[in-house]
Nucleic acid binder design. Structure first.
Lengths: 350, 350
DNA sequence: TTTTTTTATGCAATCGTTCCCGAGAACGAT
DNA sequence: ATCGTTCTCGGGAACGATTGCATAAAAAAA
């Protein structure tokens, strides 16, 4: 059932040489005569010989492949980051293996362990929202597996990290809402375990405080599944708008969360007088009605940088001990969904 | 630099057994005494032994992994299809390796050949828009590599295929436009090499003819990169609206193409009186302004079915010769972008 | 007790490739 | 003529796991 491939043995047999000679000829070793070399090369070309990467991996304990774990590829931030990852990896001769955790810690673990046992040379990880216990990753890292975290990082493992400046991104978005005249700004975010959640919450909070607005615990809602489960978000919004402090603006943290939330706000007919902005890398947020004010992350560059750092670690002769955290600025794009609010009245959209 | 893994030898040495005994004990062979078995199992558990998949692949010439090639994961149809693929694969114990061709035939070939040499057990392929010469795939298929095509298929290779009913999808979308009173319906589609292009064009054409509207060559525009290159689409739209027959409605074929086209129509201020519909699996097309009338494909199911067929081929004892093409119905969702057109005047959107 | 059968284990080949060693040949130097 | 070099090349182990075959010991049958 399995098709047979051409091996070095076939060449050896055909040319009446040993496998060692053929192997050396193929790699252009100096200790093989020019004549033999030519013969081998030509025959190899003729029968379309390709070295078997599996055999090589077994022997050399490296695969020239890097593994990626993200929560969902159907997330603009991640698919853009993956394009960045690929753009670097392919140029450096590495292949990229993409896996999804679907925000499940169990799935994340299975994926990581599978890739490790398949011999990936390094790992690019963005944690799932469920990931609290990271001992398996820690052990792997201690055993010497190069790992670079991006986007959703952790303090528990000391290695390179590449993130957006989530704090400032959230700060500016919140400040923008305040400048526009909103007073009761709610924050819908994902799992409290996530680094991005904490960072963005911090930015939101400090912007409020800076401008003399109170930070209200009841205006912050956590959706652990980050917008993957619509009901969860709907519940959060309902409790938000039925609470004693009715928000006049929404700030969402997360790609899926932003679109799902926006759709719900629209569907639940809450939108008339609610300002709206959030983190998203969707390239169609300007097509929405109203068009969305968004915080964009340089996803492609984040992917690229993470990959560069990882490959650097992989190819370093001695263990890397000097780790850095690269932070990229976000980009606030102001559109219709955060109109100026005049006094106590609602302002209509254009 | 590379961390050392626990092998069967370590167990053998520690327990003073041979590797064969350990191997057999691990797989629970009947010819190993209960006592030895227990000993081995316990020790393996203790030192956290995991069999090396690379060594197994080398020996068994199978990897329990299936390879996927799509043009872009940042395409709603494909990311949904991939979720369908994974849902089946993981349940059946297969891992999924995702690669992107970025609509490049060269890249597609590199990916396919790499996955093949890495020993994937089978391939799930959606062709790139550049793929005309399929000899490399044909050879691979003839050598026995199980391949299932989905979405973008080819007649040149006889195997299972899973697609949406593109013909009917296009037919109904076009018919809907006609029913709404549009007379000069343009069709913006992707590369003419693609099966989906031909099928959708056919549906568009027959719907026109069925309702007594002329099929105009000048109203069909091909964007070979399927919306990946915005300029290409812009050029197509410009020539469309500057042509002698000015379209009063647009029907787009392709996920990216639909959003890009819609954005351009909006930006170029063409939209006032132009009906708009297209193929897309975006879950936010109802948030657009105007909300979009779309043709949706059952992407998840297409992915699932393709995977089931592939695994069936992989696990079949004898070569499969009886191939089938599964066709799934599409779903037309009518929204604001295709309002009723009254007489010769344009009708405004709500 | 001897022979046969059963049970439990080890040896060695295999998958494809690399690489350490060693060996034979040719050649110049002694 | 003998020795050390240099140049080519082959033998065989190794990577980690499986497996057919051989074999030792133990148990059963003679």
């Amino acid at each position: 059932m399995k098709f047979d491939t051409v091996t070095i043995k076939d060449i050896a047999k055909a040319l009446n040489l040993s496998t060692s000679t053929v192997s050396r000829a193929l790699r252009g070793s100096y200790e093989i005569s020019a004549e033999t070399k030519k013969q081998v090369l030509e025959y190899a070309e003729k029968i379309n010989y390709r070295p078997n990467p599996i055999a090589l991996s077994l022997k050399e304990r490296r695969t020239r492949a890097i593994g990626v774990v993200v929560s969902e590829i159907a997330n603009n931030f991640f698919s853009q980051a993956i394009n960045g990852i690929e753009s670097i990896a392919y140029n450096r001769g590495y292949h990229v293996i993409i896996t999804q955790s679907h925000e499940s810690m169990e799935r994340e673990k299975v994926n990581v362990e599978h890739m490790a046992s398949r011999g990936v040379d390094g790992l690019l990880v963005s944690l799932s929202s469920e990931s609290v216990d990271l001992t398996y990753l820690k052990e792997m890292h201690e055993k010497g597996m190069p790992i670079v975290f991006f986007d959703r990082v952790t303090d528990e493992i000391e290695t390179h990290k590449v993130i957006a400046n989530n704090y400032l991104g959230a700060y500016h978005a919140t400040e923008h809402l305040i400048f526009q005249g909103y007073k009761r700004i709610a924050h819908v975010t994902s799992s409290p375990y996530l680094s991005i959640t904490a960072e963005r919450l911090q930015g939101y909070r400090e912007a409020l405080e800076k401008h003399g607005l109170p930070f209200e615990e009841s205006l912050v809602k956590y959706c652990s599944h980050g917008g993957m489960i619509s009901d969860e978000v709907e519940e959060a919004l309902n409790s938000l708008f039925k609470g004693k402090i009715r928000p006049d603006a929404l700030f969402t943290a997360g790609d899926r969360l932003t679109t799902v939330c926006f759709a719900l706000v629209k569907r639940l007919k809450l939108k008339k007088d609610v300002g709206f902005t959030g983190f998203t890398n969707s390239h169609v947020s300007d097509l929405f009605s109203p068009s969305l004010t968004v915080v964009q992350q340089p996803a492609f560059e984040i992917g690229q940088t993470a990959t560069e750092l990882l490959i650097q670690m992989i190819e370093s002769k001695r263990p890397v001990v000097d780790f850095e955290t690269r932070k990229f600025p976000t980009n606030l794009i102001i559109r219709e969904s955060t109109p100026k609010r005049t006094a106590e009245k609602r302002s209509g959209h254009k």
